[in-house]
Design a binder for these strands. Structure first.
Lengths: 194, 194
DNA sequence: GGGTGTTGTAATCGGATGATTACTAAGTGT
DNA sequence: ACACTTAGTAATCATCCGATTACAACACCC
Protein backbone atom coordinates (compact mmCIF):
# COMPACT_ATOMS: atom_id res chain seq x y z
CA UNK A 1 0.00 0.00 0.00
CA UNK A 2 1.26 3.51 -0.76
CA UNK A 3 2.20 5.68 2.18
CA UNK A 4 -0.45 8.17 1.12
CA UNK A 5 -3.19 5.57 1.44
CA UNK A 6 -1.75 4.45 4.77
CA UNK A 7 -1.80 8.01 6.03
CA UNK A 8 -5.49 8.32 5.19
CA UNK A 9 -6.23 5.01 6.85
CA UNK A 10 -4.34 6.00 9.98
CA UNK A 11 -5.96 9.44 10.13
CA UNK A 12 -9.39 7.81 10.00
CA UNK A 13 -8.40 5.50 12.84
CA UNK A 14 -6.93 8.41 14.77
CA UNK A 15 -10.18 10.37 14.45
CA UNK A 16 -12.15 7.47 15.90
CA UNK A 17 -9.77 6.81 18.78
CA UNK A 18 -8.95 10.41 19.68
CA UNK A 19 -12.67 11.10 19.60
CA UNK A 20 -13.42 8.25 22.00
CA UNK A 21 -10.52 8.69 24.42
CA UNK A 22 -9.22 12.25 23.97
CA UNK A 23 -5.75 13.49 23.10
CA UNK A 24 -3.90 12.50 26.24
CA UNK A 25 -6.03 9.42 26.78
CA UNK A 26 -5.08 7.94 23.42
CA UNK A 27 -1.80 6.12 22.80
CA UNK A 28 -0.11 5.94 19.44
CA UNK A 29 -0.38 2.18 19.83
CA UNK A 30 -4.17 2.45 20.13
CA UNK A 31 -4.27 4.24 16.80
CA UNK A 32 -1.79 1.83 15.23
CA UNK A 33 -3.79 -1.24 16.26
CA UNK A 34 -7.04 0.30 15.07
CA UNK A 35 -5.41 1.07 11.72
CA UNK A 36 -3.79 -2.37 11.60
CA UNK A 37 -0.16 -1.23 11.51
CA UNK A 38 2.67 -1.17 14.00
CA UNK A 39 3.13 1.64 16.50
CA UNK A 40 6.57 2.75 15.26
CA UNK A 41 5.20 3.13 11.76
CA UNK A 42 2.51 5.54 12.94
CA UNK A 43 5.15 7.62 14.67
CA UNK A 44 7.37 7.56 11.62
CA UNK A 45 4.63 8.66 9.24
CA UNK A 46 3.47 11.52 11.47
CA UNK A 47 6.69 12.27 13.38
CA UNK A 48 4.84 12.77 16.69
CA UNK A 49 1.56 12.12 18.44
CA UNK A 50 0.92 15.84 18.46
CA UNK A 51 1.21 15.96 14.69
CA UNK A 52 -1.07 12.97 14.37
CA UNK A 53 -3.75 14.74 16.40
CA UNK A 54 -3.40 17.86 14.29
CA UNK A 55 -3.87 15.72 11.16
CA UNK A 56 -6.98 14.09 12.64
CA UNK A 57 -8.41 17.45 13.68
CA UNK A 58 -7.75 18.94 10.25
CA UNK A 59 -9.32 15.94 8.56
CA UNK A 60 -12.40 16.38 10.73
CA UNK A 61 -12.62 20.07 9.85
CA UNK A 62 -12.06 19.40 6.15
CA UNK A 63 -14.79 16.80 6.06
CA UNK A 64 -17.14 19.07 8.02
CA UNK A 65 -16.64 21.97 5.64
CA UNK A 66 -16.81 19.73 2.59
CA UNK A 67 -20.19 18.34 3.65
CA UNK A 68 -21.51 21.78 4.60
CA UNK A 69 -20.49 23.26 1.24
CA UNK A 70 -21.99 20.30 -0.62
CA UNK A 71 -25.21 20.85 1.29
CA UNK A 72 -25.27 24.49 0.25
CA UNK A 73 -24.42 23.61 -3.35
CA UNK A 74 -27.08 21.07 -4.25
CA UNK A 75 -29.79 23.25 -2.79
CA UNK A 76 -33.33 22.03 -3.23
CA UNK A 77 -34.23 25.34 -1.51
CA UNK A 78 -37.65 23.95 -0.69
CA UNK A 79 -36.40 23.79 2.89
CA UNK A 80 -34.45 26.36 4.88
CA UNK A 81 -30.67 26.28 4.66
CA UNK A 82 -30.23 26.04 8.42
CA UNK A 83 -32.39 22.93 8.60
CA UNK A 84 -30.47 21.20 5.84
CA UNK A 85 -27.06 22.02 7.30
CA UNK A 86 -28.27 20.85 10.68
CA UNK A 87 -29.27 17.52 9.21
CA UNK A 88 -25.94 17.27 7.44
CA UNK A 89 -24.22 17.80 10.78
CA UNK A 90 -26.17 14.95 12.33
CA UNK A 91 -25.48 12.69 9.37
CA UNK A 92 -21.76 13.25 9.96
CA UNK A 93 -22.16 11.09 13.06
CA UNK A 94 -21.53 8.17 10.73
CA UNK A 95 -17.97 9.45 10.30
CA UNK A 96 -16.82 7.94 13.57
CA UNK A 97 -15.08 10.33 15.92
CA UNK A 98 -15.49 13.50 13.89
CA UNK A 99 -17.63 15.46 16.35
CA UNK A 100 -15.74 14.30 19.40
CA UNK A 101 -12.29 14.86 17.97
CA UNK A 102 -13.36 18.44 17.35
CA UNK A 103 -14.89 18.65 20.83
CA UNK A 104 -11.62 17.56 22.37
CA UNK A 105 -9.69 19.99 20.21
CA UNK A 106 -11.94 22.83 21.38
CA UNK A 107 -10.97 22.04 24.97
CA UNK A 108 -7.24 22.07 24.30
CA UNK A 109 -6.99 25.85 24.03
CA UNK A 110 -4.17 25.93 26.56
CA UNK A 111 -1.96 23.61 24.51
CA UNK A 112 0.88 25.57 22.87
CA UNK A 113 0.46 23.95 19.45
CA UNK A 114 -3.02 22.45 19.35
CA UNK A 115 -4.61 25.52 20.97
CA UNK A 116 -3.81 28.00 18.19
CA UNK A 117 -4.74 25.43 15.54
CA UNK A 118 -8.09 24.84 17.21
CA UNK A 119 -8.84 28.55 17.43
CA UNK A 120 -7.97 28.96 13.77
CA UNK A 121 -10.23 26.07 12.77
CA UNK A 122 -13.10 27.36 14.86
CA UNK A 123 -12.79 30.81 13.33
CA UNK A 124 -13.03 29.23 9.88
CA UNK A 125 -16.27 27.53 10.80
CA UNK A 126 -17.69 30.82 12.04
CA UNK A 127 -16.60 32.49 8.82
CA UNK A 128 -18.35 29.81 6.79
CA UNK A 129 -21.65 30.46 8.50
CA UNK A 130 -21.37 34.21 8.14
CA UNK A 131 -19.92 34.53 4.62
CA UNK A 132 -20.87 31.38 2.75
CA UNK A 133 -24.09 30.24 4.40
CA UNK A 134 -25.28 33.82 4.77
CA UNK A 135 -26.24 33.58 8.44
CA UNK A 136 -26.59 36.65 10.60
CA UNK A 137 -24.28 36.75 13.62
CA UNK A 138 -27.17 35.88 15.90
CA UNK A 139 -28.21 32.90 13.80
CA UNK A 140 -24.62 31.67 13.49
CA UNK A 141 -24.15 31.88 17.24
CA UNK A 142 -27.37 29.98 17.88
CA UNK A 143 -26.43 27.34 15.32
CA UNK A 144 -22.99 26.82 16.83
CA UNK A 145 -24.53 26.54 20.28
CA UNK A 146 -26.88 23.78 19.16
CA UNK A 147 -23.95 21.99 17.60
CA UNK A 148 -21.97 22.15 20.81
CA UNK A 149 -24.89 20.69 22.77
CA UNK A 150 -25.12 17.83 20.27
CA UNK A 151 -21.38 17.22 20.62
CA UNK A 152 -21.70 17.07 24.39
CA UNK A 153 -24.67 14.72 24.27
CA UNK A 154 -22.76 12.42 21.92
CA UNK A 155 -19.51 12.59 23.89
CA UNK A 156 -21.34 11.83 27.12
CA UNK A 157 -22.94 8.78 25.50
CA UNK A 158 -26.31 10.13 26.60
CA UNK A 159 -28.00 7.85 24.07
CA UNK A 160 -27.27 5.03 26.49
CA UNK A 161 -29.84 6.54 28.87
CA UNK A 162 -32.49 7.27 26.26
CA UNK A 163 -35.64 5.40 27.15
CA UNK A 164 -34.52 4.52 30.67
CA UNK A 165 -34.17 8.03 32.13
CA UNK A 166 -37.25 10.18 31.62
CA UNK A 167 -35.26 13.43 31.79
CA UNK A 168 -32.81 12.29 29.12
CA UNK A 169 -35.61 11.02 26.95
CA UNK A 170 -37.27 14.42 27.17
CA UNK A 171 -34.00 16.17 26.30
CA UNK A 172 -33.54 14.04 23.20
CA UNK A 173 -37.08 14.72 22.05
CA UNK A 174 -36.50 18.45 22.53
CA UNK A 175 -33.25 18.35 20.56
CA UNK A 176 -34.34 16.10 17.75
CA UNK A 177 -38.11 16.39 17.29
CA UNK A 178 -37.98 14.78 13.86
CA UNK A 179 -34.65 12.99 13.45
CA UNK A 180 -34.71 10.91 16.65
CA UNK A 181 -34.81 7.42 15.12
CA UNK A 182 -31.96 8.33 12.80
CA UNK A 183 -29.89 9.63 15.72
CA UNK A 184 -30.47 6.54 17.82
CA UNK A 185 -29.42 4.53 14.82
CA UNK A 186 -26.09 6.14 14.01
CA UNK A 187 -24.86 7.65 17.30
CA UNK A 188 -21.91 5.95 18.98
CA UNK A 189 -22.93 3.98 22.04
CA UNK A 190 -21.43 2.53 25.17
CA UNK A 191 -20.19 -0.58 23.41
CA UNK A 192 -17.39 1.37 21.77
CA UNK A 193 -13.92 1.49 23.36
CA UNK A 194 -13.67 3.03 26.80
CA UNK B 1 -4.73 21.46 59.13
CA UNK B 2 -7.59 18.98 59.34
CA UNK B 3 -7.90 16.44 56.61
CA UNK B 4 -11.32 17.84 55.78
CA UNK B 5 -9.88 21.26 55.05
CA UNK B 6 -7.08 19.66 53.06
CA UNK B 7 -9.60 17.78 51.00
CA UNK B 8 -11.41 20.99 50.11
CA UNK B 9 -8.14 22.67 49.24
CA UNK B 10 -7.08 19.78 47.03
CA UNK B 11 -10.47 19.57 45.34
CA UNK B 12 -10.26 23.26 44.45
CA UNK B 13 -6.78 22.72 43.01
CA UNK B 14 -7.99 19.63 41.16
CA UNK B 15 -10.84 21.58 39.58
CA UNK B 16 -8.42 24.19 38.26
CA UNK B 17 -5.88 21.72 36.91
CA UNK B 18 -8.32 19.14 35.53
CA UNK B 19 -10.14 22.00 33.85
CA UNK B 20 -6.98 23.31 32.22
CA UNK B 21 -5.43 20.00 31.19
CA UNK B 22 -8.21 17.41 31.18
CA UNK B 23 -8.48 14.14 33.04
CA UNK B 24 -5.73 12.17 31.32
CA UNK B 25 -3.59 15.25 30.78
CA UNK B 26 -3.41 15.97 34.49
CA UNK B 27 -1.07 14.18 36.88
CA UNK B 28 -1.75 13.72 40.55
CA UNK B 29 1.53 15.55 41.11
CA UNK B 30 0.17 18.58 39.20
CA UNK B 31 -2.75 18.74 41.59
CA UNK B 32 -0.54 18.14 44.62
CA UNK B 33 1.86 20.95 43.69
CA UNK B 34 -1.02 23.33 43.00
CA UNK B 35 -2.52 22.49 46.38
CA UNK B 36 0.88 22.71 48.07
CA UNK B 37 1.07 19.14 49.34
CA UNK B 38 2.96 16.04 48.31
CA UNK B 39 1.75 13.69 45.59
CA UNK B 40 1.40 10.58 47.80
CA UNK B 41 -0.81 12.51 50.17
CA UNK B 42 -3.25 13.39 47.40
CA UNK B 43 -3.43 9.74 46.42
CA UNK B 44 -3.95 8.69 50.01
CA UNK B 45 -6.74 11.17 50.68
CA UNK B 46 -8.64 10.26 47.50
CA UNK B 47 -7.44 6.67 46.99
CA UNK B 48 -7.09 7.13 43.22
CA UNK B 49 -6.87 9.74 40.49
CA UNK B 50 -10.24 8.60 39.22
CA UNK B 51 -11.81 9.31 42.60
CA UNK B 52 -10.13 12.69 42.72
CA UNK B 53 -11.68 13.62 39.38
CA UNK B 54 -15.09 12.47 40.54
CA UNK B 55 -14.71 14.67 43.62
CA UNK B 56 -13.73 17.66 41.49
CA UNK B 57 -16.64 17.08 39.11
CA UNK B 58 -19.09 16.74 41.98
CA UNK B 59 -17.76 19.90 43.59
CA UNK B 60 -18.24 21.74 40.31
CA UNK B 61 -21.79 20.47 40.01
CA UNK B 62 -22.57 21.29 43.65
CA UNK B 63 -21.29 24.81 43.28
CA UNK B 64 -23.19 25.27 40.02
CA UNK B 65 -26.46 24.16 41.51
CA UNK B 66 -25.86 26.12 44.69
CA UNK B 67 -25.36 29.35 42.74
CA UNK B 68 -28.31 28.65 40.45
CA UNK B 69 -30.61 28.00 43.39
CA UNK B 70 -29.38 31.10 45.18
CA UNK B 71 -30.10 33.10 42.05
CA UNK B 72 -33.64 31.76 41.96
CA UNK B 73 -34.11 32.36 45.67
CA UNK B 74 -33.17 36.02 46.07
CA UNK B 75 -35.29 36.95 43.09
CA UNK B 76 -35.62 40.64 42.37
CA UNK B 77 -37.97 39.46 39.57
CA UNK B 78 -37.59 42.75 37.83
CA UNK B 79 -35.55 40.85 35.26
CA UNK B 80 -36.32 37.48 33.66
CA UNK B 81 -35.07 34.36 35.44
CA UNK B 82 -33.18 33.12 32.40
CA UNK B 83 -31.16 36.31 32.18
CA UNK B 84 -30.22 36.19 35.83
CA UNK B 85 -29.21 32.54 35.74
CA UNK B 86 -27.20 33.21 32.61
CA UNK B 87 -25.30 35.96 34.37
CA UNK B 88 -24.74 33.71 37.36
CA UNK B 89 -23.25 31.13 35.02
CA UNK B 90 -20.82 33.66 33.61
CA UNK B 91 -19.90 34.89 37.07
CA UNK B 92 -18.92 31.32 37.94
CA UNK B 93 -15.92 31.81 35.66
CA UNK B 94 -14.21 33.23 38.71
CA UNK B 95 -14.31 29.73 40.23
CA UNK B 96 -11.32 28.57 38.27
CA UNK B 97 -11.79 25.40 36.26
CA UNK B 98 -15.47 24.84 37.05
CA UNK B 99 -16.79 25.12 33.49
CA UNK B 100 -13.95 23.23 31.92
CA UNK B 101 -13.90 20.42 34.45
CA UNK B 102 -17.54 19.85 33.59
CA UNK B 103 -16.77 20.14 29.89
CA UNK B 104 -14.13 17.45 30.18
CA UNK B 105 -16.48 15.29 32.21
CA UNK B 106 -19.14 15.59 29.51
CA UNK B 107 -16.67 14.17 27.00
CA UNK B 108 -15.75 11.16 29.12
CA UNK B 109 -19.00 9.31 28.45
CA UNK B 110 -17.10 6.21 27.39
CA UNK B 111 -15.29 5.91 30.71
CA UNK B 112 -16.69 3.04 32.79
CA UNK B 113 -16.86 5.05 36.03
CA UNK B 114 -16.78 8.72 35.07
CA UNK B 115 -19.22 8.24 32.18
CA UNK B 116 -22.22 7.17 34.29
CA UNK B 117 -21.43 9.84 36.90
CA UNK B 118 -21.32 12.51 34.20
CA UNK B 119 -24.64 11.40 32.73
CA UNK B 120 -26.22 11.45 36.16
CA UNK B 121 -24.92 14.95 36.86
CA UNK B 122 -26.07 16.25 33.52
CA UNK B 123 -29.54 14.82 34.07
CA UNK B 124 -29.70 16.66 37.38
CA UNK B 125 -28.94 19.95 35.68
CA UNK B 126 -31.69 19.32 33.15
CA UNK B 127 -34.07 18.50 35.97
CA UNK B 128 -33.22 21.74 37.74
CA UNK B 129 -34.14 23.80 34.70
CA UNK B 130 -37.38 21.95 34.14
CA UNK B 131 -38.63 21.50 37.70
CA UNK B 132 -37.04 24.23 39.78
CA UNK B 133 -36.44 27.05 37.33
CA UNK B 134 -39.70 26.34 35.55
CA UNK B 135 -38.30 26.29 32.03
CA UNK B 136 -40.13 24.61 29.18
CA UNK B 137 -38.20 21.81 27.48
CA UNK B 138 -37.45 24.05 24.53
CA UNK B 139 -36.13 26.84 26.73
CA UNK B 140 -34.04 24.44 28.81
CA UNK B 141 -32.51 22.96 25.67
CA UNK B 142 -31.67 26.38 24.30
CA UNK B 143 -30.19 27.45 27.61
CA UNK B 144 -28.00 24.36 27.86
CA UNK B 145 -26.83 24.89 24.29
CA UNK B 146 -25.73 28.44 25.02
CA UNK B 147 -23.89 27.19 28.07
CA UNK B 148 -22.05 24.57 26.04
CA UNK B 149 -20.95 27.20 23.53
CA UNK B 150 -19.64 29.36 26.35
CA UNK B 151 -17.75 26.36 27.76
CA UNK B 152 -16.16 25.70 24.40
CA UNK B 153 -15.17 29.32 23.91
CA UNK B 154 -13.57 29.35 27.33
CA UNK B 155 -11.84 26.01 26.93
CA UNK B 156 -10.45 27.05 23.55
CA UNK B 157 -9.04 30.21 25.11
CA UNK B 158 -10.84 32.18 22.42
CA UNK B 159 -10.52 35.32 24.52
CA UNK B 160 -6.87 35.34 23.46
CA UNK B 161 -8.00 36.22 19.93
CA UNK B 162 -10.58 38.84 20.92
CA UNK B 163 -9.63 42.13 19.34
CA UNK B 164 -7.06 40.64 16.98
CA UNK B 165 -9.32 38.37 14.90
CA UNK B 166 -12.37 40.13 13.49
CA UNK B 167 -14.41 36.91 13.31
CA UNK B 168 -13.75 36.05 16.95
CA UNK B 169 -14.48 39.60 18.01
CA UNK B 170 -17.82 39.41 16.23
CA UNK B 171 -18.61 36.07 17.88
CA UNK B 172 -17.94 37.47 21.34
CA UNK B 173 -20.15 40.47 20.71
CA UNK B 174 -22.92 38.14 19.53
CA UNK B 175 -22.58 35.94 22.62
CA UNK B 176 -22.19 38.66 25.22
CA UNK B 177 -23.86 41.85 23.99
CA UNK B 178 -23.88 43.39 27.46
CA UNK B 179 -21.42 41.47 29.66
CA UNK B 180 -18.36 41.64 27.40
CA UNK B 181 -16.07 43.71 29.62
CA UNK B 182 -16.86 41.49 32.58
CA UNK B 183 -16.09 38.36 30.55
CA UNK B 184 -12.78 39.69 29.31
CA UNK B 185 -11.98 40.50 32.90
CA UNK B 186 -12.60 37.16 34.55
CA UNK B 187 -12.14 34.56 31.78
CA UNK B 188 -9.02 32.38 32.00
CA UNK B 189 -6.41 33.33 29.43
CA UNK B 190 -3.38 31.87 27.72
CA UNK B 191 -1.08 32.68 30.61
CA UNK B 192 -2.49 29.83 32.64
CA UNK B 193 -0.80 26.39 32.64
CA UNK B 194 -0.56 24.54 29.34
C1' DG C 1 6.04 10.21 79.59
C1' DG C 2 4.69 6.57 76.94
C1' DG C 3 0.90 4.86 73.97
C1' DT C 4 -2.13 6.05 70.05
C1' DG C 5 -4.08 8.36 66.23
C1' DT C 6 -3.50 11.96 62.65
C1' DT C 7 -1.07 14.68 59.24
C1' DG C 8 2.30 14.53 56.15
C1' DT C 9 6.69 13.30 53.26
C1' DA C 10 10.79 10.77 50.99
C1' DA C 11 11.92 6.97 48.49
C1' DT C 12 10.75 3.78 45.34
C1' DC C 13 8.42 0.41 42.34
C1' DG C 14 6.22 -1.34 38.24
C1' DG C 15 3.87 -0.57 34.28
C1' DA C 16 2.84 2.29 30.40
C1' DT C 17 4.16 5.14 26.52
C1' DG C 18 6.36 8.10 22.87
C1' DA C 19 10.17 7.76 20.40
C1' DT C 20 14.51 5.70 18.30
C1' DT C 21 17.31 2.23 16.20
C1' DA C 22 18.28 -1.47 13.51
C1' DC C 23 16.60 -4.55 10.68
C1' DT C 24 13.71 -7.22 6.80
C1' DA C 25 11.20 -7.61 2.55
C1' DA C 26 9.62 -6.14 -1.58
C1' DG C 27 9.68 -3.57 -5.54
C1' DT C 28 12.21 -0.65 -9.35
C1' DG C 29 15.36 0.93 -12.51
C1' DT C 30 19.73 -0.39 -15.08
C1' DA D 1 22.69 -9.48 -10.89
C1' DC D 2 22.91 -5.21 -8.30
C1' DA D 3 22.29 -0.79 -6.23
C1' DC D 4 18.53 2.06 -4.35
C1' DT D 5 14.23 3.44 -2.62
C1' DT D 6 9.96 2.45 -0.08
C1' DA D 7 6.88 0.06 3.28
C1' DG D 8 6.94 -1.99 7.40
C1' DT D 9 8.27 -4.34 11.99
C1' DA D 10 10.74 -6.14 16.37
C1' DA D 11 13.32 -4.77 19.98
C1' DT D 12 14.53 -1.44 22.99
C1' DC D 13 15.22 2.98 25.51
C1' DA D 14 14.27 6.78 28.56
C1' DT D 15 10.85 8.95 30.80
C1' DC D 16 6.74 9.63 33.23
C1' DC D 17 3.17 8.54 36.45
C1' DG D 18 -0.03 6.39 39.76
C1' DA D 19 0.44 3.87 43.57
C1' DT D 20 2.70 1.70 47.72
C1' DT D 21 5.67 1.47 51.64
C1' DA D 22 8.08 3.06 55.31
C1' DC D 23 8.95 6.54 58.17
C1' DA D 24 8.86 11.40 60.69
C1' DA D 25 6.53 14.98 63.32
C1' DC D 26 3.07 16.29 66.21
C1' DA D 27 -1.07 16.30 69.14
C1' DC D 28 -3.86 14.36 72.64
C1' DC D 29 -4.93 11.47 76.48
C1' DC D 30 -4.14 8.88 80.67
Amino acid sequence: MSSGERREQIVAAAMAVFGAKGYEGTTTDDVARTAGVSQPYVVRLFRSKENLFLAAMQAALDELMRVFRATLADSPSDRPVAKRIGEAYVDLLSTRGLHQTLSHAWLLGGHPVIGPAARHGFAQVWQFFRDEAGFEAEQARSFLAEGMLINVMIGMRLVDDYGSDARITELFRACFPTELPHILDIAPRGDEPW
